[in-house]
Design a protein around this nucleic acid. Sequence first.
DNA 1: ATTAATGATACTATAATAGTATCATACTAA
DNA 2: TTAGTATGATACTATTATAGTATCATTAAT
Lengths: 148, 148
Amino acid sequence: MKLLTRNTDYAVRALSYIAMEKGKTVTAAELSEELKISWSFLRKILQILSREGLVFSIKGKGGGFKLAQPADRIFLLDLINIFQGLVRLNTCITNNKACPNIRICILKKKIDIIEDSIISELHPITLKTLLNEQNDVIQNELLNMQTR
Amino acid sequence: MKLLTRNTDYAVRALSYIAMEKGKTVTAAELSEELKISWSFLRKILQILSREGLVFSIKGKGGGFKLAQPADRIFLLDLINIFQGLVRLNTCITNNKACPNIRICILKKKIDIIEDSIISELHPITLKTLLNEQNDVIQNELLNMQTR
DNA sequence: ATTAATGATACTATAATAGTATCATACTAA
DNA sequence: TTAGTATGATACTATTATAGTATCATTAAT
């Protein structure tokens, strides 16, 4: 069972990198180089992000990608939805009203509750969250080095 | 994203049905009939449950399956592990120490936390839980009918 | 014009899930 | 002791999801 697939993971990395460049356009080639991710695969991911309005693309020489939204408006949940489909996929397997077995419905209710909690835990996570916490980590590292 | 696959779902149904028969052996054919699940597929699932020690099988005429453990010792998490692998699969995608990008590690930490909470929510759910709550539902139904 | 970038799209590869089929084996009962 | 009924082991196929690649068209800068 995987919570995140490669797609989503790579998308987060790419977006993070782009965010760090503060408005400068970043090419797929640069991202591929820096993040060590296959160029063609990254390109596909970036095209999707562009189509979905998360990044803004500029064609031709000097082109590349920029964030189309501020980092605190880019939600991890959106990326999961884009690349992995809705978390809320707990439809009745025997998709009918006359569930032959009520037990499974109890199970479904339990799973619903767990899915709700997954969603509510994912909900506050934005690109900004991730970038900020990274900064915190780095600052702590520096602090530790100074006090040592 | 799916939390439960068909395998697991069917396993729960089969085990629930078997549990309701209180020690009487139940054949794959009966389960298939009652639960409207393909006989061959169910058989495969039952064989796995048997191999994993969750049910106890008796071959030949009059044979079938019984629970090998009391219903409060059969954990949903075990079924998930058997049929879907560990929830805890959040290994580093770039499986090396020199993660080229610390950002993803922050993400990994977040996902770890969410996975922990999924596990702790799943943990208390046993076959008995499901059966009991089913009874509660049924009893409430009856009560409603009486008071109406 | 040439070069460097993305857009659209179609294709292949791999892995996970879902499902089927076959033969061997064990037990029961006539 | 044989016929019938059950599971065990195992191998196979089908479908779907994920991962990854390739090609040609389009746009912009120099």
